[in-house]
Design a protein around this nucleic acid. Structure first.
Lengths: 328, 328
DNA sequence: TTGAAAGCGTTACCAC
DNA sequence: GTGGTAACGCTTTCAA
């Protein structure tokens, strides 16, 4: 492993000159710089990141916290973030909480160990409110994705979930449905609550009474959607709005098992517009979130803050749209 | 941020003693250690990882290289790796090549910058042979997943793809099919070649001549499977073995578009057994790879090597099984 | 424009 | 058992 000293020796200059030359700083004669750069290249030199962060107190690394990177929902968000990271040279360090509230431990290690310069937290649990507050106390910048916290200093990127729930329900209402079920998400997450809110709002606007038994709570997973649909089928309804696509898949399965047809017997609208939703049977009508954009935007904000180009307290709300396919 | 010196000052000992105490090394009186640990806890001390790696030359970080973490195929492998990483305290650093052969640049940065202690490379391209060879020259330990290289020093974890292809084709043969198409993967990948090989072997065993026009090459992606199937439909066949599930999804779509029924008009067998394959219409019969296990095993091997408990040159071949659903 | 030297937080070595 | 000190590779003063 070539070091800065090796290069300095070969070039016949001091290590500090090499450092400045390689970092494109002022105060190095152009000819010297060229010589140094050439030698560095020849030696296949790469700065030792540990040594560098030790003195700069920066790691050029951003930590990304989410429930489970293997959930397809996250993949486009992550891709959007990676796009920016590649442009800016930041390294992304993922940490999956797997619903384990104790991911605070990993975070604390990341932060206190000074392994990351900033954090993006996707889809935080309501119960973690205290944790987020504690984070805000720290000096480390962070952005919340899929969450809007009232605190004006907290950076948030989210989609208007109330509007999304409204859109989905309204779509079914417009098709003439009057008895519309809702498969809700995990109620510990604000998004689940917001989508219910949108559902209620559309119902109310249409003059339809909210019916407790038509709302069954799932867990945002396919299997939960399956179970919820089985219940909803007993309660009886002609249409269902599922709080996310993964649950809609399970619901579709449950409906098929009962020998019922979609959308003729039961219409279905999901939320997220995952890649796979074009491939279900029938293809799923769903509320689209611009996930790639959301990921991109969140990292842009964080990067700007880390670079000192932005003060923080940025709030970005994306508007959802409905993607019409054949399930409703 | 509390440092080891702060603790030393408060405890009234030398920094070196604190270091030994916190790292559970010999040569610290139990009472001293307890006192030090208590102070460290009180101060919320976490070792600065940059400082530590600078002297130990270890980062406790493992780099994971793959084409695209958002492909569902990788998710279970990654989960298996994370399981081990959590147990052993290693941090995983992901790098997606996005088919960009130039991911060598990122790797070189990871390695030369001493950011990772070892690497897991999932699904490497055949063209990267030189790159792998170069890697072997380096002192950095690595494990190849989904690839078996003849070099006895290279650690490999893979599934018997020839056998998998054989199993799939044989299954269709046993159902009485005689004209079986194959949607091959990207031919730059050994797995694609191996699965074709298995397909041919089964055909030969059944005394059926291999027919060039019945093999259409996709790219391992859904859309490629769709296009390949359209071609295959023209060539005419009663069954298809797709080299992975993602392509099978596209193929299913193409078949449905032609108004044909699965498995009555065309039977379909995939490869991988992704979570989603239980949800297609009809549910997909497919060759199962133990992806979680493969991920787990690969990291166990690498960890053992890094810990010096294993010399290297480990070869682990998993056997595929067929998961029978309703598409064939 | 260049060089010398200090220091980042930790571990490792050697003396006590 | 403990303490002092040098090193790890880099950036950053400050002086030349």
């Amino acid at each position: 492993m070539a070091t800065i000293k090796d290069i300095a020796r070969i070039a016949g200059v001091a290590p500090s000159v090499v450092s400045r030359a390689l970092n494109n700083k002022y105060g190095v004669k152009e000819s010297t710089r060229k010589r140094i750069v050439a030698i560095a290249k020849e030696l296949g030199y790469h700065p030792n990141s540990a040594a560098r962060s030790l003195v700069t107190r920066r790691t050029e690394t951003i930590g990304v916290v989410m429930a489970d990177i293997s959930e397809p929902y996250f993949s486009q968000i992550v891709k959007g973030m990676e796009y920016v990271a590649t442009q800016t040279g930041y390294t992304l360090l993922f940490s999956n909480s797997y619903e384990n509230v104790e991911h605070g431990r990993v975070l604390r290690k990341m932060i206190s160990g000074e392994r990351v310069d900033g954090l993006v937290i996707i889809g935080s649990n309501i119960q973690e409110k205290g944790f987020i507050a504690a984070l805000a106390e720290q000096e480390i910048p962070f952005v919340l994705v899929e969450r809007n916290l009232p605190d004006p200093k907290v950076n948030c990127v989210w989609v208007d979930n109330v509007q999304g729930g409204y859109l989905a329900t309204r779509f079914l209402l417009d098709k003439g449905h009057r008895r519309i079920g809702h498969i809700a998400g995990n109620l510990h997450f604000q998004v689940a609550l917001d989508r219910i809110e949108g559902y209620k709002r559309a119902l109310e606007e249409a003059g339809i009474a909210f019916c407790e038994e038509l709302v069954v709570s799932g867990n945002f997973l396919t299997e939960g959607g399956y179970r919820a649909m089985k219940e909803l089928l007993k309660a009886g309804c002609t249409a269902v709005f599922a709080a996310n696509d993964a649950m809609a898949y399970g619901a579709l399965q449950a409906i098929a098992e009962e020998g019922l047809a979609v959308p003729d017997d039961v219409a279905m609208v999901g939320f997220d517009d995952l890649e796979f939703s074009a491939l279900t049977h029938p293809p799923l009508t769903t509320v689209r979130q611009p996930r790639y954009e959301m990921g991109r935007r969140s990292l842009e904000i964080l990067t700007a803050i880390l670079r000192g180009e932005e003060a923080g307290g940025v709030k970005v709300c994306f508007q959802p749209e409905i993607t019409v396919r054949r399930s409703a």
